[in-house]
Each structure stands twice: as structure tokens, then as C-alpha cells.
Design a protein around this nucleic acid. Structure first.
Lengths: 141, 141
DNA sequence: GCTGGCCTTGACGTCCGCGTGAAGGTCTAC
DNA sequence: GTAGACCTTCACGCGGACGTCAAGGCCAGC
């Protein structure tokens, strides 16, 4: 299989595949004319890469999974290095979620405080309007 | 106050202040020699900007707050436009948190599945080890 | 043999916000 | 007078995952 066919079947581009090869992530054999030659296994590697990318993994983080598959293991996450990446990612996600929740709480606090201040101002203004009208009537006489 | 002093008091750099001016976010008066001249008010504007940046607001998102202060309101979030930014930011944060939690759940699921598969493999191997030892003992006799 | 489609390498462009750096000149403080 | 602060404008960096040419090689079908 040549690069164009693999790209199409994997739903990606030839440029991405060359980029992966450049990173040493997805090396390709070469046929006689210098064209990259891929097998069905490479399609599985690509699917592994894309699945992890959808989870927000960087390309370097997919490397242990790819190497695990290349080593002949049945799944990309059969190897300790892959599990370690899972663990790191979970910790990273937890940290990120915690930070965002903290920020959210602070923003919400500011928002509610500001909204309340606005309402109190509006209530104060409403209370002052009659006095203003009285003053006008007073002046009118 | 000149740009260097303001930058130092606000804990930022002169480059950043010139950049904010370039964005029209923090315009400066000019003294006779062409130097930027800032007042105490500008320090408050800067503090508002930095506070919001710490919350993850982009510079453009701080603009309504800054303009609100520039209009003479007591607080940057006294104006409807600022409250609207708060609301948008809260929605954005909620969406971001939800996405991350969903991803976290999926990664956790993959991780646990992979770990279980490993344990089962290890258990299978452990179950085989005694047989191996027995075999060795058997051979030993 | 020629067109069109696939492939090759290499190098630079894109996106995004938030600045930073450098060059070359003016102004101020000691 | 000299160091340091300031001025302007233009350009560049960052980080990651590619996109987009450019210039050319290889091959199938007509």
C-alpha cells in the first residue's frame, strides 16, 4: 500500500504520514522506486494514534502505544510504558479540571457579587426616583 | 508617572504597556517630550487587566472592564458588558470542564481495561508458574 | 510519447494570543 | 558627558501539527 491509499483509509493526509515518519513514529519500508510501502499493520498503528489524539494526547504521548503495537503486542496499551502514559494523562486531566473548577468558582463569585451590586444600585435608584419627582412637583409650585 | 514606573508598580514590563496601548486598551497621555504619562487610575486599570488575565481572560475580554473603569464606574464589572463577559466565560468554563471530564472518563475506562487485561495475563502467567516449578521439580527427580 | 496522477525531498507558512527583541534615535539625571 | 530611560517601527518567537508550494521522478493508460 502506498502513502495516498493509507492516508485515505486512515482518514488523514499524506503530509501527516510523512510527518509521523519524520518523527520516527511511523517508519515506512520503501519499494524499489523509493515510494513508501505500508502494510495493514500500519493502518492499525494509525488508528491507535488517531484515537489517542482524539483524547487530547500529543503525538509524543502516543509513541509508547505505537511501539507496543510494533513490538507485536495485541493492544497498544498492553505495555507498562503505555499504562504509565495513561496515569500521567489522568493526573494531568485531574489537575486541569481542578484548576478550571477553581477558576470557575472565583469567576462565579465575582459575577454574583457584581450582579448583586447592580441590583442594589437599581433598587436604590428606584427608591430615589419618587423623591426626584416630589422635588420636581415642589419646584413646579 | 512614566512607563517604567507604572510597569514596575504593576509588576509588568514597558513592552506590555506599549502593547496594550497599541491595542487601544490602555491609552496614555503624552508629556511635552513625547513620553507616555500615566496616572494612578491607570494602575487600577492594569490591576483589573492582570486580575482577569489570571482568571484566563484574553486581553480582548478585559476590554469591557477597562472601559467601564475608564467611564468612571467604581468597579470594572459595574457595566452590563462586563457582566456579559462573565456569563460567556462561565459558559465557556463549563463547556471546557465538561469536555475534560468526559475525556477523563474515557481515558480512565481505557486505563482500567488495560490494567485488568494485564492482571489477568499476569494471573494466567502466575497460574502457569507453579506448573512450571512442578515441572522443574519433576525434572529434578 | 504524452498527459495526468501519484510519488519524492526540502523549505517555508499557518494558527493563536501575548508579547519580546533589535535597531537607531532622543531625553534626562547625576 | 555618559549611563540609563524613553521614543518609534519592524520583525520575530513560541508550540504543535500539520498545510502549501516548488521542482522534479515514476508509472499507467491512450
Amino acid at each position: 500500500m502506498r502513502i495516498g491509499e493509507l492516508a485515505q483509509r486512515a482518514g488523514t493526509t499524506t503530509r501527516a504520514l510523512r510527518y509521523y515518519e519524520q518523527l520516527g513514529l511511523l517508519p515506512a519500508r520503501r519499494s524499489g522506486n523509493g515510494y513508501r510501502a505500508y502494510g495493514e499493520d500500519d493502518l492499525r498503528l494509525l488508528e491507535q494514534i488517531r484515537t489517542l489524539q482524539d483524547f487530547g494526547f500529543g503525538l509524543e504521548e502516543t509513541r509508547p502505544f505505537v511501539e507496543c503495537l510494533q513490538a507485536g503486542h495485541p493492544a497498544g496499551d498492553s505495555c507498562p510504558a503505555s499504562l504509565e502514559v495513561y496515569r500521567r494523562k489522568l493526573a494531568e486531566l485531574d489537575g486541569c479540571i481542578a484548576r478550571l473548577q477553581e477558576v470557575r468558582a472565583q469567576v462565579a463569585e465575582q459575577f454574583e457579587r457584581a450582579e448583586q451590586a447592580r441590583d442594589e444600585l437599581a433598587a436604590g435608584a428606584a427608591a430615589e426616583v419618587p423623591r426626584c419627582e416630589l422635588a420636581i412637583e415642589w419646584e413646579g409650585r
